[in-house]
Amino acid sequence: MASKRKYRGIDQLSTRDKVVVSLMVIVPTLIVLWLVWLPAIGSVLLSFTNWDGIGPLSGIKSVGLQNYRDIATIYPPFWPAIQHNLIWLAVMFLVATPLGMLFAVLVDRGVAGTRFYQTSIYLPVVLSLALIGFIWQLIYSRDQGLINAITGGTTDWYGDPNVNLWAALVAASWRHAGYIMLLYLAGLKGVDPSLREAARIDGASESQTFFKVVFPVMRPINIIVLVVTFIESLRAFDLVWVINKGRNGLELISTLVTQNVVGEASRIGFGSALATIMLLISSVLVFIYLRIAMKEE
């Protein structure tokens, strides 16, 4: 079915088309370059200083690698944060994302009331942080929370550092599943119905149809979901921040960056060093993704 004709080269575009194509790329590129990459480079450079963010740039003094040394040696929250980020990543990959995909597939079947189901699952994504903080406080509070009231227990869901990460992950999965469902649903709607029909005529069962036919053609969407999960897990921030500003068992790298950079603390250099470490970790993974993607092109 694939065409043998060569028609997809820029070379074969008219001059006007070439201008259009260039503009389509250049404008967004410039915006991202200017407002994301330029500051990112600035941030990397600042990570070698102890600047407090006040005064002219000329007053900045380099301290070499001291921030990085301090982070690895005398900054207690750093290693727990790395560990928590990895746990976060694992739970999102193994639980929340598959759950969201499953919901999308179920909702896609078009049973009566599908709009209601979609809305219910998506609602957590819409809510403001203030509300999400309150909602889970109602459930998890040690003295007044619903769980302890029903079970009669005294588990300190938010305060016990062995428990609170998992409590936060339940809340995070609750939101993440709705988000993934939405993205995946949009992908499922793009699948050619005739494929399913053909599979059904061949006598394939529902799950066979999905795994053998639908899932493979959804490959680009599957990649989206994987990458999104990855980004979200690495940048995970707001939920933990609204619970206790990322302390006492809920340390994540992004909260450490924020604690140091935002507010009066203003350890710009130190915070930038934390951010640079985060950037390095993500870059490695982006690089791996690009390698895989290139091989397949």
Binding site: Q144, Y158, G159, N164
Partner: peptide
């Protein structure tokens, strides 16, 4: 009061 790290000051004040 035990388990203080999960409790807000408002909840403590309520007690």
């Amino acid at each position: 009061q035990a388990d203080s790290l999960g409790r807000t000051w408002q909840e403590a004040a309520q007690s």
